[in-house]
Write a protein that binds this DNA or RNA. Sequence first.
DNA 1: CCATCTTTGTGCACGCGTTCACAAAGACAT
DNA 2: ATGTCTTTGTGAACGCGTGCACAAAGATGG
Lengths: 253, 253
Amino acid sequence: MATGRTHRPATRSRGIPEATVARLPLYLRALTALSERSVPTVSSEELAAAAGVNSAKLRKDFSYLGSYGTRGVGYDVEYLVYQISRELGLTQDWPVVIVGIGNLGAALANYGGFASRGFRVAALIDADPAMAGKPVAGIPVQHTDDLEKIIKDNGVSIGVIATPAGAAQQVCERLVAAGVTSILNFAPTVLSVPDGVDVRKVDLSIELQILAFHEQRKAGEEALALAEAEAVVEVSEESGKGPDGDVPAVMPA
Amino acid sequence: MATGRTHRPATRSRGIPEATVARLPLYLRALTALSERSVPTVSSEELAAAAGVNSAKLRKDFSYLGSYGTRGVGYDVEYLVYQISRELGLTQDWPVVIVGIGNLGAALANYGGFASRGFRVAALIDADPAMAGKPVAGIPVQHTDDLEKIIKDNGVSIGVIATPAGAAQQVCERLVAAGVTSILNFAPTVLSVPDGVDVRKVDLSIELQILAFHEQRKAGEEALALAEAEAVVEVSEESGKGPDGDVPAVMPA
DNA sequence: CCATCTTTGTGCACGCGTTCACAAAGACAT
DNA sequence: ATGTCTTTGTGAACGCGTGCACAAAGATGG
Ligand SMILES: NC(=O)c1ccc[n+]([C@@H]2O[C@H](COP(=O)([O-])OP(=O)(O)OC[C@H]3O[C@@H](n4cnc5c(N)ncnc54)[C@H](O)[C@@H]3O)[C@@H](O)[C@H]2O)c1
Ligand SMILES: NC(=O)c1ccc[n+]([C@@H]2O[C@H](COP(=O)([O-])OP(=O)(O)OC[C@H]3O[C@@H](n4cnc5c(N)ncnc54)[C@H](O)[C@@H]3O)[C@@H](O)[C@H]2O)c1
């Protein structure tokens, strides 16, 4: 998802696969829930079910972190929570700025899930002078003019962009110039960033379009199945019509 | 990202790879921008740059849809917009319901990017009786009691869940029972759904944790590089310390 | 101390996705 | 018509991610 460099120079350090990294938060969430219920140990099978993944995959994922399980018993919940947290860098505090405090930015600022994992909203930034000083989620909004100073004063390395698409690239450049090296982008634009900066994007519209594709496919197959059931004896009379019009104009009401 | 079934029984119809489907919206967005600037044709190289992908990948992606390019020239923008829209199922209207009209749900309801791509917010649903009837983004919020009726009356097949995590699974089950077959989940939970239902999730917390991992890795490598530069002659005196403590306690200020 | 039973950790095979590299296709000029 | 030049479409190689299946590890009970 990193837009800047799709080509990754391989996680050299201890080489945890990117796919594994993306699942660690999932495991952590499931483990935290178990921890809150004071469950002492958990098997790969149980934890995998809770996280919605294959148990072999989970075990392989954990094997990249080291041998933290006990054969015949399972994994110690508390210990694993600690190890994964440490691996993800959640044992330290990450100050985050949100730029663009509109509908979405305000919702993000109000989101409780931030603080629960070591992420702290250090500042809210918006270009609208009318918003400056107004508190959102208890934090006063600051003006874009002070962006660089805010970043540096707070030692921020993670920025969230929730501005309109047109402003995103420019905001991104200012963030990066000020020292931000990780960006979470909600604006529907491709951000170009220098090497060494990670970008991840969240795009509602893309997710919906992917769902629509599968939805259409389901409807198409259904219609096809119906057509087949009806025209069992019917012979193809007008085939070879080209690559177009393969899906008949059967729209689900 | 589909949580229900990670294992996909292969897109049988004409077999467009899942990875390609996920990129089509990206191409479509770039093409739409070109179309608005009245650019008639575009080469794979240019379009790939605009979409932030490799040009060979883009050409291969398009090859799954058919041969829509002209060698020596490139692709006809308008034609390609139409073909991709058709492939994604965006030539028809998709009524969508949003369940859970809190901070996030309200932001989603206010989002303009919905309508622009054939998605129409058919209804807003919340469990809070105090919200019933109140308009959000011009649409009156309806109570959860009527969920099934709303789904059926509007022929909704795509649902968005923006409730607290605790309510998500239950809401999901009601949606599915009422006929919804595609779900976009914003709640931080694993949803279990029957076969034939697609689930995609958007999880802010997970994205941030992935960024934190890389951020930590960057800081670690930097510290390592510094340490190496300092201790060029220094011999390892206390190695073989086990799999722990590999990253020294050097935290970025 | 030994047998049994559970569960981890991983070698291996397979399939998907990515990228390179190039032949073929066609536009365009002469 | 012929040649040149651009750009597509794709065969092939490679690498990553996934999941099976099982041996090794260790707990537990007698
Ligand atoms: N609302 C959603 O649910 C949603 C969903 C997906 C994506 N998005 C995207 O997120 C972004 C924000 O959406 P929104 O609905 O909150 O829009 P919005 O118009 O409500 O808010 C945008 C905010 O950004 C501020 N802004 C504009 N230019 C800026 C700049 N240069 N620097 C700092 N701040 C600036 C504006 O003052 C405004 O407060 C958009 O790109 C949108 O496409 C929104
Ligand atoms: N706000 C964010 O930026 C953000 C970001 C990421 C994830 N999330 C997740 O999205 C979800 C919503 O977040 P939020 O900040 O809007 O929370 P919120 O508390 O503001 O809103 C939740 C809404 O859901 C409604 N609700 C509760 N139970 C319901 C039910 N059974 N049926 C229908 N509606 C019900 C509540 O009445 C409330 O209006 C949460 O799961 C949260 O973790 C939010």
